[in-house]
Design a binder for these strands. Sequence first.
DNA 1: GCGCTGACAAAAA
DNA 2: TTTTTTGCCAGCG
Length: 106
Amino acid sequence: MDKHEFYEKVYKIVATIPEGKVMTYGLIGFILGSRYYARRVGKALSNAHGRGLPCHRVVNSKGELAPAHVFGGKGKQYRLLKEEGVFFKPNGCVDLKRSLWRPWEI
DNA sequence: GCGCTGACAAAAA
DNA sequence: TTTTTTGCCAGCG
């Protein structure tokens, strides 16, 4: 799989995440072939500025949000997700049990 | 070409 | 439970 192709697939998947749902880096990587692609997914998103992708709907495996500097604001990602109806745990992490999007389980 | 870093994650301790 | 180890690989200096 070419890296460009890989990136495009990442963008495509991210673009399909509905409001109020999130996906994890590892999950996206797994769909594309291996859980070890998780880091490349992160790179793809960091390179995806200006594409209009809902990259705030992608979180790590624990439900933690991306570091603040990525979106250029402390509670930026948190507020966006909250507005969309994503469930949060008291500790500020996404409640993956409720808000993780599993396309194959619909 | 080499070594380090990172929007990661599972397993081990 | 949290921390460490290990695996993977694209970018960058």
